[in-house]
Design a protein around this nucleic acid. Sequence first.
DNA 1: CTGTTAGCGCATTCAT
DNA 2: ATGAATGCGCTAACAG
Lengths: 335, 335
Amino acid sequence: MTVTIYDVAREAGVSMATVSRVVNNNPNVKPQTRKKVFEAIERLGYRPNAVARGLASKKTTTVGVVIPDISNAIFAEVARGIEDIANMYHYNIILCNADKRKDKEIRVVNTLLEKQVDGLLFMGGTVTEEHLQAFKSANVPIVLCATTDEHGSMPSVDIDHESAAFDAVSALTGAGHRRIAMISGTLQDPSNGYARFQGYRRALEAAGIPYDESLVRVGNYRYESGVEAMKYFLELDERPTAVFAATDEMAIGAIHYIQDFGLRVPEDVSVISVDNTRMASMVRPQLSSVAQPMYDIGAVSMRLLTKLMKKEQVDQLRVILPHELITRQSVAAAR
Amino acid sequence: MTVTIYDVAREAGVSMATVSRVVNNNPNVKPQTRKKVFEAIERLGYRPNAVARGLASKKTTTVGVVIPDISNAIFAEVARGIEDIANMYHYNIILCNADKRKDKEIRVVNTLLEKQVDGLLFMGGTVTEEHLQAFKSANVPIVLCATTDEHGSMPSVDIDHESAAFDAVSALTGAGHRRIAMISGTLQDPSNGYARFQGYRRALEAAGIPYDESLVRVGNYRYESGVEAMKYFLELDERPTAVFAATDEMAIGAIHYIQDFGLRVPEDVSVISVDNTRMASMVRPQLSSVAQPMYDIGAVSMRLLTKLMKKEQVDQLRVILPHELITRQSVAAAR
DNA sequence: CTGTTAGCGCATTCAT
DNA sequence: ATGAATGCGCTAACAG
């Protein structure tokens, strides 16, 4: 049924070793025999079996990617960066959603390892001791992507979420705001959640503004939770004059609630966030936001992984990509 | 270095066949020996090699997915549907972006086939004769996902784009609009482009409205092209009173340009589109849009593929999922 | 219920 | 530059 390297060898009148050589572009083949082999391949419609090759060579040219949720625009962007670079180096990607759930994360890491991936890109929630355990049992390189572990024992590429939040809030304090609310993500989340909250607190502190916990609401990153939080803030006796949201979606929810409430953005309330997704410029007023190079995070981490897989020298095992404040129209000076 | 099934067999004092049996949950093993084997596995830290298994069994429990662009929210949603169902049936996904470019599409189909995937989900642009050729050379099932071929020779799951556009435009004619513009996608694209354009024309016709080609602009699906098109329409001597956009993003661009121009939506100009992405309810006014069940398209196509891979009986080789008009605030009666 | 024996399709020595 | 032989780690008859 299926045509194998052996069939090709017979058809071309050579040995399977020779066929293997031409298929793998080994230069040690006379052009003439190479031609013969190619013709036989053509005639028979031979297609190399990558699984057999993988078993024999112990290389599959595929890497595993564990991702929280591919339907989330942020991660999808990272994934695209990964795949583009992977493609460039002739790797394929096995993609697994793990929803930031530890059990699922560890499970997929193991099945990926069983599939003999040549390397692993891990994008997830908190990296726990158990994760490290699973990683250690791998004999292929693993790099953390858009996550970091506390110990700093793993290769990783990420941005500095704390500092990104700091910059966003500083834009607010810099504009003279003193009563600044935050719509946070869950504090259990180390990157989107806790780190951004910390950046908020540090920026407040740097501006000499006391922390007021009644000015912080925890959302779930989504639009609706942005409007909910804003609703709460606007009912406060002393309303905030500015709001920092941990994600664009929540910021947009906040903007819309402010507007529906009869107030104006940014004249009455300034809004800023971090993510700078496409949506940021698709709202009115356009949203100021800290841009995170998600595509690049994917691309750089995949590039790093290729180096590790090829055992090349790498100078930077832990890379932090720069973020950038994109100023649009949602922030005004405090009155 | 690596511990194999043979090592486990020796450690447990059984044959490799027995180890294979317990690993594969074959019931024909005495509970006692099963226990012994599990202990040996534990002690040695044995991890089954899926590549070797794949070679021996001719099944890899992985399916290939070719997708236009994972960073596009629409496709990412489909991908999530695919992965969820795949997971449920213990398949993994190899994901390849092909940007709707024929050469790339055919190339990845071939490498996926080389990797011995058990099945293939194809999401792309036009399915040409060359595609069919490549598909035919596969000896695994393939289903088209969010695409169809003209001949109808392939299993597929999709929505009826023409009818979706028809419904959207009919909502406009139903509201009394006669001067209805369209912001189309490229007409070369069979689903998002041409089919939606055809639906527009048919709805016009059904309402007895003559087709006016000056009322159609071709965009690139993105926000900016929506504002560009709207700019053109509002400069017309006789402005449209309603606009149908082929995607939410273009619709939102149109809405914003209308508002920036000093007109109101929907009072002055009604806007409707198809896609119903999350963004539709994240604009003001909220956008009426025809919902396409992207997640379901992914889920159903993967489910169909599993049936095909298991050679189960399937009653419907070509399924069309229903769409639904979601009425929000962007359409008003014509004055 | 368990063990023996062949491959699966290919890369890779080692010769020649 | 080419061929012969071996084994990668596992499943799948088959035998018992």
